[in-house]
Design a protein around this nucleic acid. Sequence first.
DNA 1: TTTATTCCTTTGTGATCTCTTTTAGGCTTG
DNA 2: CAAGCCTAAAAGAGATCACAAAGGAATAAA
Lengths: 231, 231
Amino acid sequence: MAASAIPEFTGDHGTTTQEYAYSRLRNAIIVGAFAPGTALTIRGLAQELNLSPTPIREAVRRLSSENAIQVLGNRRLRVPDMSLGRFEELVHLRISLETHAAERAFPYISTVIIEKMRALDDQMDVALAAGDLDALTRINQAFHKDLYGLNPHQAVMPMIESLWLQLGPFQRQVIKTIKVSAMIDRHKEMLAAMEARDVTALCSALESDIRDGSIRLGRAILRNQAGETVT
Amino acid sequence: MAASAIPEFTGDHGTTTQEYAYSRLRNAIIVGAFAPGTALTIRGLAQELNLSPTPIREAVRRLSSENAIQVLGNRRLRVPDMSLGRFEELVHLRISLETHAAERAFPYISTVIIEKMRALDDQMDVALAAGDLDALTRINQAFHKDLYGLNPHQAVMPMIESLWLQLGPFQRQVIKTIKVSAMIDRHKEMLAAMEARDVTALCSALESDIRDGSIRLGRAILRNQAGETVT
DNA sequence: TTTATTCCTTTGTGATCTCTTTTAGGCTTG
DNA sequence: CAAGCCTAAAAGAGATCACAAAGGAATAAA
């Protein structure tokens, strides 16, 4: 229970304990290790990670400012619930923000970056075949991140990551529900548009990638719920 | 020095000490009380606010996750510097995000909210006449916030506020530099578009409001700098 | 006069301890 | 039988303390 709740992963955990706690919790949320609505306690998380409550509190505060964790009025913590309205809002925001990011990254696209992204896309096929959903999520995000990060002055990446954090807990429900074979992405289309240096086609493929990847499925699942809330 | 550095203000300071520290620091940054590049210390801020370092640390961590405060590798804190590239990126982002927010708030516009916003616009004239720049900033933000918050499922407001935080320290430099009489906003245009229920006109006026309010002035000032960096 | 080194001060970090609040469970009472 | 209350356990908040790392200043050497 303890070890399985917060998945381990290899990556940059930073230098301080607080950064370590932050990266562990952040990863857990973004890959969907916590279901929407899960209640969390600082002391409980501290015990799971074998840390004192102090760095956990700081990590939780950061995540609350990124809207990945809700701090309720009664001082209790929870992973936010998902509703149809909020879900659609988040997906629309993803499209707006990521399209914006792609447009502003566009002038910096090079053959080097296209090859790098193609390699990531290949890695996704491997992870898909292995059924490693955590890795699939992380590689998919790396693919998008590499593109948006091309713009050296970009300030949008932290906001996009906040959206990924907010969608993470629910996204996993979606991924678990559908057949893996049904998972299509538009990465090949995006790469082709990048090679053709066609910004319109790139944004169009990106929008489809986001929309296909979530909105249909999300709607289907949420519509089946009794109320507006999913747990 | 101590009392003058972090301005006091009336508003919701929350229930916990950490929330109080957060709202004081947040307000200080958003109204531009700290110049870009200012170095901060946790213990120093704690002394200024008569608190222990713990809640300050938590508030600072939250602000760092909103990109309002930079945590340097050597454990030092600073208000981020502004460069021409970053400034233009932030303004473009403001336009994208706030246009998005206005579009999605549009169906919820009512005469009640138009009147509320008109009242805020009137308050701005008062603050302008009184030369109260802090109030001017806060009322202007309340004006925009009232509009964007109409959409009950909106998730974009925290991101817009992150942008305001990032522009705050520099914005004050801009406001101090230009004559107060030159400060024009497009709020009347926005209100007219809202009354006419014209979403295109609203977004157009909003974009002008953001652009006129910052980009020309920002460019002029930053272009005059020797390098790319302003302090 | 300039540069490198050393020591002292300052600061961030994280664990612990105490205090207060909240919750949950069982009991009493209507 | 249900609703409200009381008590005990658990949790969050914040101060404090101890430790380690980073800066700055003073001194010595070139």
